[in-house]
Design a protein around this nucleic acid. Structure first.
Lengths: 187, 187
DNA sequence: CGCCTGATTCCGTTATTTTGGATTTTTTCC
DNA sequence: GGAAAAAATCCAAAATAACGGAATCAGGCG
């Protein structure tokens, strides 16, 4: 879509700008980065899709942030509304929980926000997320047990817990239905 | 060098985790992304340095953020609990609202999570945050009006809104008390 | 104008990625 | 246990990124 190749289309100009801003010639960054002049030229002109290895070398030479180089330039200025009925929901009847996905798809991998409703004794088991990921959970209604790795804690309404999500972890409603707000922060 | 392959060395495992987490096989992501099974396997095993084009396709298929995939990581390992009564709370900062700060102090400036209770006609005015900051707001109870810059939207229970927070913005309860969950993501 | 200096692009060669199918390994089910 | 199915890996060709030198382009000066 417009978004997809947008970054790839933006990347060349960003690199070129970074180089120009430091008053460097192709030859100069070639020597600094170990990438040939020709390659730098082709990349800056969008005629070649660099490997991440060479791109990494360029970012070092140009002193730009690898991740930041590929960030979206989100300068939106409107309110995006997701109505109650339109919220993407994962029903998990066997486990007795339904997961409402509140965060936008483009944030997946960085930031995910969920509104989770548990039936009595409902349970949500999760495999480890990316290394370093952490979750923050706030109980809106009911009572739940949280397990992260070896540790377990019981939370009531109003309580909040933060824990590592890069290990197997689990949320389980106890003594009735429950509702929690879950924010996953990937590393 | 020592630093060179740090991220590059992490990338394979992160991709693999992302795939596993969704229960996808190599073949499945191959079909989704248009990248051959063999390539995905090689990349996940660190035996090949993908071009950004193919890596981009993988991120789309795996629904992970391109930039986030290359971020540094930090790890911890216990459950940190904040009891209902212990939550730091700001009373009446706007008019007729109390703000419960759920996110840890060390995350201030990056991500902040709030649980906000409004009295009838309660209001919270905020000055612009750092440039590029965005807020995501979910209504738990009641009804609120959101204003971000020029735009205004009315939300009811269950609705979610996302909007720019680097302009003056405002949340106001209408027709009675309200409760919302607010996640601020600073740029 | 003609020449020189520096930067960028073009081109043939080499190295690496990417692919599709064959092979091996793992899982599942009887 | 053993067979069938699925998943992951290995292995050839094909495609393409990467390199180094030659050709082209853009200014500045005698």
């Amino acid at each position: 879509m417009s978004n997809d190749s947008h970054i790839l289309g933006l990347l060349p100009s960003r690199l070129k700008e970074a180089r120009r801003q430091q008053g460097l010639s192709l030859d100069a960054v070639a020597k600094l980065s170990g990438v040939s002049r020709s390659m730098v030229s082709q990349i800056e002109r969008g005629e070649s899709s660099p490997t991440i290895a060479t791109l990494w070398n360029l970012t070092k030479a140009l002193q730009v942030d690898f991740a930041g180089l590929l960030e979206e330039s989100t300068t939106a200025d409107r309110i995006e509304v997701l109505r109650d009925g339109q919220v993407p929901t994962i029903e998990n009847r066997g486990e007795g929980c339904s997961i409402r996905i509140l965060s936008p798809p483009e944030d997946a991998g960085k930031h995910e926000i969920y509104d989770i409703h548990f039936a009595p004794d409902g349970e949500l088991d999760s495999n480890p997320h990316t290394r370093g990921a952490r979750e923050q959970l706030s109980v809106i209604d009911g009572c739940v047990d949280i397990t992260s790795g070896e540790a377990t804690q019981r939370l009531g309404a109003g309580d909040t817990a933060r824990y590592a999500a890069d290990v197997t972890h689990c949320i389980r409603a106890v003594g009735g239905p429950a509702r929690v707000f879950l924010v996953v922060r990937d590393a």
